[in-house]
Design a protein around this nucleic acid. Structure first.
Length: 211
DNA sequence: AATCGTAGCAACCGCCTGATC
DNA sequence: TGATCAGGCGGTTGCTACGAT
């Protein structure tokens, strides 16, 4: 429910230090979540969404400010290579950095340096919330296309290429038998070996991404 | 010193998903 | 079971600072 619905004016643009202070006090008192309550509780003329964004990207004590270190830069490049524009996933792997920071850093610093063209949006695992928790068959994990929308991202294609010799496309199945690196295929069900009973890319070990 | 162009980044927008009723 | 709402995500916009001319 937006502010206008309550007859309140919604302010936009940069936050003042006073607004920051009010928001910080409110979050410290009531915690995060229920962002839409914050304008009502504080009198801030901001939408709940705006409050959330301001807290998550700037005010939270967990947010690290300043330039990206060499290690962070390297991590961003590697993770972007593997995950594509999945900024929240990438940020989740870089302590103190937000998806917005990573996105801005990529767009302003790295994409040009690395000569990356903007590509049309392609899903890798579908929406982050629908990332497959795939089932196991023995020590082999499988996920059907019906269970999850899967497209091969360029980076994953790169990973998969090394295992194509073991694919059995004629059976509508790609079998990545050697390691855990196989992920998915456009029009096929997929199988890949992985020692975990459940696989979720958000919590996969660094080694999974070759890091 | 003034103007222009561009880089950097904070914030907004639109869409999607899950939760709740 | 469908409608509605809140939260989260990626893409985009627009403001500010700064360097080049």
């Amino acid at each position: 429910m937006e502010l206008e619905c309550y007859g309140l004016e919604s302010k936009k643009g940069f936050w003042s230090s006073e607004e920051d202070k009010v928001l910080t006090e409110c979050v410290n008192k009531y915690g995060t979540g229920k962002w839409n309550r914050i304008p009502k509780l504080t009198g801030l003329k901001r939408s709940g969404k705006s409050c959330r964004l301001r807290w998550m990207n700037y005010l939270s004590p967990d947010v690290k400010r300043g330039d990206f270190s060499e290690e962070e830069r390297d991590l961003v490049i590697r993770l972007h290579n593997l995950l594509g524009n999945r900024w929240s996933l990438i940020a989740g792997r870089i302590p103190g950095r937000t998806d917005n920071q990573v996105k801005n850093y990529w767009n302003t610093h790295l994409s040009k340096k690395l000569g990356v063209n903007k590509k049309k949006k392609r899903k890798v695992f579908g929406h982050p919330k629908s990332i497959p928790i795939v089932e196991t068959k023995g020590n082999c994990i499988s996920a059907s296309k019906s269970a999850v929308e899967v497209e091969l991202d360029d980076s994953l294609e790169f990973i998969a290429q090394g295992h194509h010799e073991s694919s059995t496309r004629d059976l509508n199945l790609i079998d990545f038998t050697s390691t855990c690196e196989g992920i998915a295929a456009d029009d096929f069900d997929c199988n890949f070996s992985f020692p975990h009973t459940l696989f979720d890319p958000r919590s996969a070990p660094y080694s999974f991404f070759g890091l």
